[in-house]
Design a protein around this nucleic acid. Sequence first.
DNA 1: CATATATTTCGAGAATTGTCAATATGTGAA
DNA 2: TTCACATATTGACAATTCTCGAAATATATG
Lengths: 106, 106
Amino acid sequence: MGIDMIEISKALSNETRLNILKWLKSPEENFPPQGGCLSEPVDLKGGVCVSSIQAKANLSPSTVSNYLDTLQRSGLLLSERHGKWTYYRRNEETIRALAKFVKEEL
Amino acid sequence: MGIDMIEISKALSNETRLNILKWLKSPEENFPPQGGCLSEPVDLKGGVCVSSIQAKANLSPSTVSNYLDTLQRSGLLLSERHGKWTYYRRNEETIRALAKFVKEEL
DNA sequence: CATATATTTCGAGAATTGTCAATATGTGAA
DNA sequence: TTCACATATTGACAATTCTCGAAATATATG
């Protein structure tokens, strides 16, 4: 139901994870076009694959995969696998709920 | 100037620290009257001393002092010393700035 | 000054997180 | 099936955080 403020705070307390969230606000500005999987463009609005994020973050693939998993488990990101690629995008619903929580309940 | 999102997130990623922030929203409901220092009631609106918070948090004084320091260094709390007591209260300005940041920039 | 109280600082061990290289798994292509 | 690529998982070690008790500091009072 509600957001898990502690898990979200943990996810946000790392500069790279914070950057990933910010980069994913405008994927077209921050990442090359995601041409890997063209068959299902419908649900993919703004999703970016791990390797693109890894290249930008300049950390090892395992670290970035781990970070993305942390962000997803906290609810801040959504992921969708298409073929070889896993596309991550922001979960705006959680982010809105977080803003509401900070404003009204923190 | 702006808030330090990483330090704030670290401060918020602990249940007791989150509770302290919440308790300090209504000190009169959550703590006994702060009669310790009656000479300067003006600037003290809602400030609560460490021992009251420690009793409620049920952790050692050093741990609570450390938590309060963490919250203060992140900007989420303000502290004021009056005699033997240090009174902590919420820094609503930072909390508002945090809500704005999450809503507009996260 | 000597003592008692409130708080902070210090030192330490346990628990968690950061980060990588190596390995494993899943998938598409040849 | 075999290979190559994308991603995830595992194992390891370093760094940070959690939490305490002990010691130090500040302040009020006898």
